[in-house]
Design a protein around this nucleic acid. Structure first.
Lengths: 152, 152
DNA sequence: GTTATTGCAAAAACTTTGCATGGGG
DNA sequence: CCCCATGCAAAGTTTTTGCAATAAC
């Protein structure tokens, strides 16, 4: 079975890009931290551990490239920083996010909950949906159970 | 009947802020361009027409203030710029956006289409939803009908 | 060899902050 | 008087760009 990095390499080649060592290190960092939502700076610091000579500009250029290839999505949670989130392979739509306003945790929902909503959008507004971005703000399960413990 | 600006004035006063001429001019610009999604710079340039002496920093400070009071939402569509979008008065949730990948138009859906989805999120993930941000990317009605005209 | 890619440094773009000044009550 | 709010300029952050050096084929 082909590895994830192999398939990304093919995507790069298909678009006439190379998988240089720097690009590979960057992709590896993203794969190893798939649950996180790393900023370019975060990625840079992690990549530096593998490839100390890499420059920040290269990380930016690589992340831009991966965004273009739809390997990652560039997201923005309101702080002034862009973050990069791996797309599930072959997913037609970007996954949803749950942001806890108490503890700041960012969880992901991989399951697509918007099928019916998109049908409504297409019918009622004549808009052909290609992708979506959905984020909920609220209180996560963990913070709620902490509240219980404290008897509040 | 009380005007929108009057009610915003009361909101400011309720939080111990004044509706200064600069703040009023900024709010007026937002009200007059409610359909748009203005950046701080956009707002600044429009406010300057009414109050030429205003500084960019004041516009930023006012927009931050209005965000805090939930009069506007600060949004980010992926270009590196924050944009400010008036909330509907009394709305519990932020409205949805439709971004056309052909022409770049940003339309709004005021109707809340996420009621059922939020129930699922609350039940299945134990997450109490307080607000949401939903944006669709796709082809708007206008671009599709243009396509028809061209016989494509 | 030729072309893509990199690292560095400089620049750009956007936003925030410090501070003296000004205005209202 | 006091204090909030302002304008300006400076500083801060994040991201992009220019360019010579380097690496890949």
């Amino acid at each position: 079975m082909e590895s994830r990095i192999e398939r990304i390499k093919k995507q790069l080649h298909g678009a006439s890009y190379k998988l240089t060592p720097q690009r590979e290190a960057t992709v590896m960092v993203l794969l190893e931290n798939e649950a996180d939502h790393l900023s370019a700076e975060d990625v840079f610091l992690l990549v530096k551990e593998k490839a100390p000579e890499i420059g920040l500009a290269t990380v930016y250029r690589t992340l831009e490239l991966l965004t273009e290839l739809k390997v990652v999505n560039k997201i923005n949670f309101g702080d002034g920083v862009a973050r990069y989130d791996l797309r599930k392979e072959g997913a037609a739509r970007f996954h949803h996010h749950l942001i806890c306003i108490e503890c700041g945790a960012v969880d992901e929902i991989q399951e697509d909950l918007l099928g019916e909503v998109e049908k409504v959008v297409e019918k009622r507004f004549g808009f052909t949906v290609k992708d979506h971005w959905l984020t909920f703000h609220g209180i996560c399960k963990r913070c709620k159970s902490e509240g219980d413990t404290k008897g509040k």
